[in-house]
Amino acid sequence: MELIWEGIKEAINLLVSGDPEVWEITLLSLKVSGLATLISLSIGLPLGTWLALSRFRGRQFSLSIINTGMALPPVVVGLWVSIFLWRSGPFGSLGLIYTPAAIVIAQTIIAAPVVTGLTAATLQQLDPRLQLQLLGLGASRTQMILALWREARLPLLAALMAAFGAVISEVGASMMVGGNIRHQTRVLTTATVLETSRGQFAMAIALGFILLFLAYVVNLSLTWIQQRGAK
């Protein structure tokens, strides 16, 4: 118990004193996971919409692949991104392995199926006649889709939260493709793993607190937007 108590005290001290390394790790985590979530959104929202509204052969199979992708293990993603970005791999010449960009790529692969799958499920829940009604009121196809997104904004924001939650908390892929290099690719989750393995519990607890706090603040903001839209 004393170990935990000491760790908590040290964590508060680190946070209050504004330790530069802690800040650096926190900002990098936010940047990398925020960017990965945004890219996932720009891929997943149109793709999920297309899957929900189109009728084509193989649509059900595509949806099942996307739904499977929602449970993609981060270490598997880390493994395949590593293979592709490895110096001798297909994209090795880009020199992305062990860079923040590699982490963004891996996290995007984790989050995109979440956004796509939840977008498709959300839009399929809407009354299909709503599309006809919107078009019948003179909407262009783009206006119709925007109106449907607006109509489904609450579950779509939940999809965004789920995607951000999935990437800010994953460690396997970030560790494998980022390498947890100090001042370069160290993010909150990989740093927590490292500090724990070194027995530096105070630092690990501090990082854990920050991770939780960050996830809470982001989700609080999105929940606020979501509930504002519900009124």
């Binding site: 009354d127 009604q133 003179g138 109106a147 109509e151």
Partner: peptide, 15 residues
């Protein structure tokens, strides 16, 4: 379609 107006059986109002 912008020259016509369509009203379906259910009101299908937006939220």
């Amino acid at each position: 379609r912008r020259k016509i107006g369509l009203v379906l059986q259910n009101p299908l109002l937006l939220n």
